[in-house]
């Protein structure tokens, strides 16, 4: 009986030991891929962001590829792919080369690597044509400049998808791209004028920006927009602006390019001088 007890304790201890060892390694839960929303009117810059999301998420690209500039990985490093893509295959533009490597990866194998990537348009990864365009945009942006839009047609695309792309083309043409708005338009679009005046030195709900270019440095303007409560001028309510901007979804919508345009616009307001 004593032996049986000892063996029991021993068994529990060994199993507990292995459980303990397993707690020492990184603990990560992997969730099924989320669908990245691709709107028909996305700009190229937005596509790059969406493409990056797909590349690290649903597309599982970064499991094998690195984007670090280190060579010698399992699959080719993508740090400069936007730069080298155009020279990889004769007669292929960078978009065509990237498209082929995604739809038909084993057509061209980078020297020193083994074939083995699966076509990402097929299950299990199963990206649709729009998603692949986003990934191409992202890849172009790595070391180069993205040029594709959701309207770009590729000969690898299936037919129904190109029809869908044509449909989206119409809707995409309808609205102007938010990226090309001027600072003034942005100021109006995000309703900054409700609280801040740029034409009069009188404060409204928030301080006047009539003389913003002289009063604030660019860095202070950035801070005042992105973190309004960091410095609040006297006699104004802290938290009001951040609450307002959060409510209108300003922080989700604004791109770094737009932000720069907006700040530049404000920096030009030198009404006092």
């Amino acid at each position: 009986m004593m032996n049986a007890l000892k063996i029991c304790v021993f068994t529990v201890l060994v199993a507990a030991f292995y459980s303990y060892v397993s707690q020492m390694v990184p603990q990560k839960v992997t969730y099924p891929p989320e669908e990245t929303e691709l709107g028909a009117d996305m700009t190229t810059e937005e596509l790059v962001v969406a493409g990056e999301e797909i590349a690290s998420g649903k597309g599982t690209c970064l499991t094998c590829h690195t984007v670090s500039g280190d060579t010698g990985g399992r699959f080719p490093d993508l740090a400069n792919i936007g730069l080298v893509a155009a020279d990889r295959k004769e007669g292929f533009s960078d978009v065509e080369y990237l498209a082929e490597s995604l739809y038909d990866p084993n057509e061209y194998i980078v020297e020193g690597f083994l074939p083995g990537m699966t076509p990402i348009s097929d299950p299990p990864i199963d990206l649709n044509d729009q998603e692949i365009l986003a990934v191409i945009a992202y890849l172009q942006s790595l070391g180069g400049v993205a040029t594709v839009t959701l309207d770009t047609e590729l000969r690898w695309q299936s037919e129904e998808n190109s029809a869908a792309a044509a449909a989206s083309q119409a809707s995409a043409a309808a609205g102007p791209s938010a990226e090309n708005l001027s600072g003034e338009e942005l100021f109006a679009m995000y309703a900054c004028g409700t609280c801040h005046s740029v034409t009069e030195p009188t404060p409204l709900l928030g301080p006047s920006l009539y003389n913003a270019g002289n009063d604030f440095s660019t860095a202070e303007l950035y801070e005042a927009i992105m973190d309004p409560d960091a410095v609040v001028a006297e006699e104004f309510t802290a938290g009001l602006m951040s609450a307002q901007l959060n409510a209108t979804g300003f922080y989700d919508k604004i791109s770094s390019g737009q932000l720069k345009t907006l700040v530049d616009y404000l920096a030009m307001q030198k009404g006092g001088s």
């Binding site: 060579t71 490093d77 740090a79 980078v110």
Partner: peptide, 9 residues
Amino acid sequence: DHGGGGDGH
């Protein structure tokens, strides 16, 4: 010379 995948930095 940078070739192949990425270059050093």
